[in-house]
Simulated assay, not measured.
Amino acid sequence: MTGSGTAGLTGRTRWVLVSAAAVLLFGGAAIFGIGAFADYQGQQAQSSEVVTAEAGSAGIAAVAGSDADAPRIVFRNTALGEGYGVVAAVPLTDPSGPRVLSDVSCDRVYATNTYEMCLRVNRGVVTTFTADLLDARGALVKSWPLPGIPSRTRISADSELVSFSAFITGETYASVGFAINTQIAEVDGADSGTLEDFALTVAGSRVTAADRNIWGVTFTSDPNVFYATADSGGRTWLVQGDRAARTLVAVRDGVECPSVSPDGTHLAYKKVVSTTPTTTWTVAVLDLATNEEVVLPEPSNVDDQVEWLDDSTVIYGVLRADDSGDSDVWAAPRDGSSAPRLLIEHAWSPAVIR
């Protein structure tokens, strides 16, 4: 959050203020809610643009075929028409084939074979925001209120930890002075609380400025260790977090929304390539052993948290220039050896279930 008047507040106190602001946000959301709900209904009131197969209440267990454990890619369906905004799946072996639609609507989704994290804008006369943990059949396991527009979410590979972020003001990463809240929670245990309560250190010095933000968590094989983005004073850093010590230590400048490769050897992330007239990003990949960075030859603006198709390929959503409500998922080799290729049309927020 911005403003010198909050410089001495702790993360806990700031979260109380954030919650109060969220109440005001919810109370004043009627006009937004009516418009958003009407737009959402309009996007669904036509035939779908893609070949689909209904899965009903099967949730993330659904996949084209009879094997519910088959490797697949789960994503938010952005094809205009019936099924717009619901969680969908395609077989990992046939990403361009017919997609199975669930009956679960999400604005941001991530999934493992056990759980699904569904960040929602609950559209209505008064709009609210939630982070919902669902089981493989789409049943609600846990729910957390969000203070604004959903942003990022992840689940650890062992399905024991979840993270979720939301904008407090409803702005975006390209906004000046945006504010965001991020939390980590144990599925069967305690919440770690807002990451603003963690001690942030950059170049050996503690950063206590009130405008700091942390988002874009990615988990490692160590349940205590994660990576994320930290921001303060117009600068961003890749930070390594320690849940037990409640610390965040900057390890690289200019990195946003990291994603650890399945084998734990590389990090993919967003990298700023322009700030004029608005911020635009491309995808870069860091070799954690050599500290060598490769910038991928991606010509489009990538405002997504990268996912890994396998240890050598990244995938990510790109908004369509002709329709802000639609997007596609692209794939690219991590070494930048070839141009990105279209993987799934009319899709967003992909998660690979191997």
Rank of each mutant, 00 (worst) to 15 (best):
P71Q: 02
F226M: 04
G5C: 07
P147F: 07
R152S: 13
F167D: 07
V176I: 07
I353C: 06
V51Y: 07
S48P: 02
Y316F: 14
L92P: 00
G97C: 02
D263H: 03
A61Y: 06
D69N: 15
L80H: 11
I315Q: 11
A55T: 09
L119A: 08
V294F: 05
W144A: 07
A250L: 08
V239A: 10
N122R: 13
G138M: 10
A250F: 09
P297L: 14
D94M: 06
T229F: 05
Y269Q: 05
R152K: 08
P350N: 10
L238N: 12
A331W: 00
D323L: 02
I73M: 13
P71G: 00
D94N: 10
Y84S: 05
W144Y: 12
T276C: 02
S4P: 13
G189M: 09
S47K: 11
S156N: 06
F226L: 06
V63R: 10
A321F: 10
A321E: 15
R354Y: 11
S300Y: 07
A70I: 06
S159Y: 10
L267T: 03
S324G: 14
R252I: 06
C106F: 12
G138E: 04
N301D: 15
G254Y: 05
P299M: 10
A190Q: 13
W237M: 04
Y40C: 02
D231H: 14
D197A: 13
P95D: 09
E293L: 04
A30C: 03
D310I: 08
D39T: 15
E256N: 13
V251M: 02
G193W: 11
R320V: 13
D132W: 01
P297C: 10
T313G: 12
G27C: 05
I353N: 13
V314G: 11
S205C: 00
A131R: 09
S96D: 15
D311C: 04
A174F: 04
T236N: 14
E82G: 02
T130F: 02
V207L: 12
I344D: 03
P333R: 14
R152C: 09
A20F: 14
G3C: 09
E49S: 14
V86N: 01
N181M: 13
A347N: 01
T236G: 11
A131Q: 01
G124R: 15
T265P: 04
V260Q: 04
